[in-house]
Computed example of a mutant assay.
Amino acid sequence: MKLKSLLMLSLTSLVIVSCAKEVHSTERNIAVKPQENPVVQLAKSPQPNTIKVGNFVSGEHKTQGIAIITKKSGKSFLELDKSFKTSNSGPDLVVILHRSGNVIGSTKPPSYSLKKGDYIVLGRLQKFSGSQTYAIPNNINLADYKSAAIWCRKFNATFGAAKLSNS
């Protein structure tokens, strides 16, 4: 009788340990999955001085990153974040604000050319990648401009644009 009880107890213990090990293994796999498939955040969390923000989409050339309009000390700025990157294959690249909320979709490939009067030039592109800041003239009504874009003035070609939405 004692042997039967001991055998039952051993068998029960073995089953419990096996189940516990299986649960532990499952929990470990769940913990690993988020590391295998990290969630990429497309836009920064808005800062208190952020007015508008948007993600670049490619036009004539691959362009990526985030455009942010901020206000500091009563002045407005367009900032391209550290993830910004565009092609270095164009001459006379400038940063613009555009009236359309869909610059790439409302223009025709391959160059995605722009019409005079639909944009304002903020300045020459400082560098092809990384964070950079452009002052927006005080007389500009930001409500009139719905996108930021990288534009080749010489060939009237839009490299990429970011639709700006209120933060």
Rank of each mutant, 00 (worst) to 15 (best):
L9W: 03
S10C: 12
S10W: 03
L11C: 05
L11A: 14
T12Y: 07
S13Q: 06
S13D: 06
L14G: 15
V15R: 02
V15M: 04
I16Q: 05
I16N: 01
C19D: 08
A20F: 09
A20K: 06
A20I: 14
K21N: 13
K21Q: 14
E22G: 12
V23R: 11
R28K: 12
I30R: 12
I30T: 09
A31T: 05
V32D: 09
V32C: 05
P34G: 13
P34L: 11
Q35T: 09
Q35R: 15
Q35L: 11
E36R: 12
N37R: 10
N37W: 04
P38M: 08
P38I: 11
P38G: 08
P38A: 07
V39S: 06
V39T: 09
V39E: 08
Q41N: 09
L42T: 06
A43I: 10
A43V: 08
A43K: 12
K44S: 14
K44Y: 10
K44E: 13
K44F: 07
P46D: 05
P46K: 01
Q47N: 11
P48K: 09
P48C: 03
T50I: 02
T50R: 07
T50F: 04
I51Q: 06
V53G: 14
V53S: 15
N55R: 15
N55M: 15
F56H: 04
S58K: 04
G59F: 00
E60Y: 12
E60M: 10
E60V: 10
H61M: 09
K62E: 09
K62V: 13
T63S: 05
Q64D: 08
Q64S: 13
Q64M: 09
I66R: 00
I66C: 09
I68L: 10
I68T: 13
I68Y: 00
I69W: 00
T70V: 15
K72W: 03
S73I: 15
S73G: 14
S73R: 14
G74C: 05
G74L: 01
G74S: 08
K75M: 10
K75F: 03
S76W: 01
F77V: 04
F77R: 04
L78I: 04
L78P: 02
L78C: 04
L78T: 06
E79V: 12
L80T: 03
L80C: 02
D81H: 01
D81K: 03
K82T: 08
F84M: 03
K85G: 07
K85D: 11
K85A: 12
K85V: 07
K85H: 11
T86H: 04
T86Q: 04
S87P: 01
N88R: 10
S89L: 11
S89R: 11
G90L: 12
G90I: 04
P91Q: 14
P91N: 14
P91M: 13
V95S: 08
V95M: 05
I96P: 00
I96R: 02
